[in-house]
Design a protein around this nucleic acid. Sequence first.
DNA 1: GTCTATACGGAGATAGAC
DNA 2: GTCTATCTCCGTATAGAC
Lengths: 215, 215
Amino acid sequence: MPERTTTARATPDERRRQILDVACTLFAHHGYAGTTTKAIASAAGITEGLIYHYFGGKADLLVEVVNQRSALLTQVRTLLRDEGDAPVVRTMPLIARGWVELVRRQGDLVITMVSESHAHPEVGAAFQGLLDEIRGGLEGYLQRRVAAGELRADLPVSVAAASFLSSLLMFFYTRADLDEAAWQVEASRFTAALLDVWLHGALAPTQNPTQNPTP
Amino acid sequence: MPERTTTARATPDERRRQILDVACTLFAHHGYAGTTTKAIASAAGITEGLIYHYFGGKADLLVEVVNQRSALLTQVRTLLRDEGDAPVVRTMPLIARGWVELVRRQGDLVITMVSESHAHPEVGAAFQGLLDEIRGGLEGYLQRRVAAGELRADLPVSVAAASFLSSLLMFFYTRADLDEAAWQVEASRFTAALLDVWLHGALAPTQNPTQNPTP
DNA sequence: GTCTATACGGAGATAGAC
DNA sequence: GTCTATCTCCGTATAGAC
């Protein structure tokens, strides 16, 4: 078995990972086209030439970075499966918090996908595919809660799921620069309020004058 | 007074506009860093040198493009003012449709702002400022409808407004490539369903067992 | 596996003729 | 106001030594 006495750091796989991580961060902060191979090498503490030992070219970096979304998708699936068929008032807050924290932890990847969506059709397709799968998962859960009679029968589940996820995603996207402490506070507030609106709607309860004026 | 007999097209102001329009379109499709001055000149039917006669440099183009957002803001303000204090079931559909059509007509600008948000802090700030002002406007309207008793008193108006706008914005952002016909269909459907969820919420009406089992 | 050195093209920008 | 010509630098990518 391969033994390492001292020093000798960074196995090939670690290097690949490291380069991809650095690239992802820089892509998020400066955009793909705005990130130079020199900057990537410098931030990774290596030379430009080494990048081409591990990857075919700069374009490959973007592809491989975006492919890491599958890990993100897996985590969301776990999130949805774990909360199987519990009532929405219990599950939705967990999904909301899980989704928002997941997006934040994978923030650079998400920012890169959103930012490069329109410049690189493949990225746009990957991003939309990811959102669609996640929305589909949530949709399935909502459908089951409709069947259980907990959600209204005429709820447009697909749009309800999309709206829920979009709102949290946009929230993250516009506050990604917050430090961890401020983020926790704002994310909690926003999530709670969003759930309130999403569950109960904006309208005042039954002010229909022909029925139940004051019950 | 300045007279023009024939030909002699493109006044200085028209040229500026034209260059900015072309730049905005290309920024949206290839990103700022991915757009070359050569490409802008070529698409505008002029030479690169002329760009520098009208603008200080490429960076100025981005700034001026993003500054066009004020026009967008004005239009939203008009939209909100015109529908003053009418009931939500009448006004919100108009706001939804107006917002979504506005965003689509100014699609290249919106895509550019979103895409370049994190690479260029000034753009990010401009974008967030724009969203904040629009949300604030909608929030004011909602607050008045709360006062009128039409919306529930405990509605988190700020988040309700943000969620409404975010959902429509993300919808546009992920379907910007649809052709006009398909767009009209999908936008109508989405908008109607979103309003349904937003107004009435997802929960089934009062299945509280201690009260009104079947009224 | 990692670095040095270098080729090559293209990017933004300027000068000056018309 | 518009174009042609050109400058300079920097970006990606390769070759080859260690």
